[in-house]
């Protein structure tokens, strides 16, 4: 758990850069795509970027998953990753599923009412 893991995690800030790229992909999709369903998918990508960022914050070199396996009274803090971001992101994932469900329901209603999900066509129909 020591040498290999350290090699895996000693990437410095590369994970932050990759997370930023993921965030930019999501933001670009939300801003630039015309189809509302694609905007929703881009929003999910953005949520994944935030989740990956939090999980990257929780990592510690040479640490293992936050399930205590040793029986002794003394627990070495440095040998377990930070459990707090994991707990927060666990709820965030389920909430993102729920919000995606609500968003899909809203999209179905919009499509029923206006017959389209394209933003420009929706705006044109709203102006009529």
């Amino acid at each position: 758990m020591t040498d290999d893991m350290e090699g895996l995690w000693s990437v410095g800030t590369a994970q932050y850069f990759l997370t930023t790229v993921l965030l930019m992909v999501g933001l670009y999709g939300i801003v630039a795509r015309q189809h509302l369903l694609r905007k929703l998918m881009a929003m999910n990508i953005l949520q994944v970027a935030v989740i990956v960022f939090f999980i990257a914050l929780s990592a510690k070199s040479g640490a293992t998953v936050p399930v205590v396996i040793e029986d002794g009274l003394e627990i070495n803090v440095a040998s377990y990753v930070n459990p707090l971001p994991h707990a927060l992101m666990l709820t965030a994932i389920v909430v993102s599923v729920s919000t995606t469900g609500v968003a899909l329901a809203l999209l179905i209603r919009i499509r029923r009412r206006y017959g389209t999900l394209s933003e420009t066509m929706l705006l044109a129909k709203l102006r009529e």
């Binding site: 800030t13 990257a56 510690k60 070199s61």
Partner: peptide, 13 residues
């Protein structure tokens, strides 16, 4: 400016 990934002394940890 963030602490490097895997830093055991980062503020979050």
């Amino acid at each position: 400016g963030l602490p490097p990934v895997g830093d055991p002394e980062s503020p979050a940890a």
